[in-house]
Design a protein around this nucleic acid. Structure first.
Lengths: 134, 134
DNA sequence: AATCAATGTTATGTTTTCTAACATGGAATT
DNA sequence: AATTCCATGTTAGAAAACATAACATTGATT
């Protein structure tokens, strides 16, 4: 897991913000979760918290729906993207230990990642973002 | 206003998330706002929404407080940072029109900025972020 | 001892989000 | 044409998160 991926998978956004950013209704977002197209984190009080990756995926879902793909198809598409991507990932150095980090360490790391911002992209579906520039 | 600055000034985060990221109490955050060290946006329902810049500033406030600077001093410091930084900004091209954008256009832009991620930094206090890597 | 700055704590009200149920419109199927 | 199904809207009621405001506390300064 690259630092960028860590940053992009941080649960940060309430559903209200995600609604604005994606222009999806709460109903739609929850429905997609219900069908396991996204799996946002939850707070202790059971509120959803979305990551940048979640938002990314929601926008892709929206895009595919507008192209006529149904949820079943989208689910498959998202899934093949994941499995076909794994082999392309460079073998990670042993430095990048995946071993359990303490909560404190993780929080510190995530903080610095977030605030340092992303300078290199390791996104799966590269080029997809072009559709936001119309 | 660079695209990065737009992205970093987007009101996105609830106070709960900001508490976690900064390890400040709600009381502290509100107190700093009360003394006009930050001015987070509000939702229609009056909930605070913080930007990355707000979080950045909160962390700087926290840092300065730990160094013994009081709020009055911090206020001055933040202010001189702002005024001394303006001349360093390159003159913006006339392409970068500041004219009013429609809400829709702005939202699209912000969305793409957010999701595209920051690749170049135009931060004011550069180097400050190093303190997050201990 | 009194004051002040920064923060904690508590009370009370409002906003946001939650789940669950039912409704609807359009497409596909029978 | 009637039915079914998918995706979404709408509503109700409960709980979480957040708002302001007031009072308490702690440590430093006067």
């Amino acid at each position: 897991m690259s630092s960028s991926n860590i940053r992009r998978s941080m649960p940060l956004f309430s559903i209200g913000i995600v609604m604005q950013l994606t222009e999806l209704s709460a109903r739609q977002i929850r429905y997609y979760e219900e069908h396991q197209l996204i799996t946002p984190m939850r707070t202790d009080g059971n509120r959803r918290l979305f990551s940048l990756n979640d938002i990314d995926r929601l926008l892709e879902i929206k895009d595919l729906l507008e192209q006529g793909v149904n949820l079943a198809g989208i689910k498959k598409l998202l899934f093949v993207n994941q499995v076909e991507q794994v082999p392309n990932e460079p073998i990670q150095k042993s430095e990048e230990i995946k071993k359990d980090l303490s909560d404190g360490e993780l929080r510190k790391l995530l903080k610095s990642e977030l605030l340092h911002g992303g300078r290199h992209r390791t996104t799966l579906r590269q080029g997809d973002m072009s559709r936001f520039f119309h």
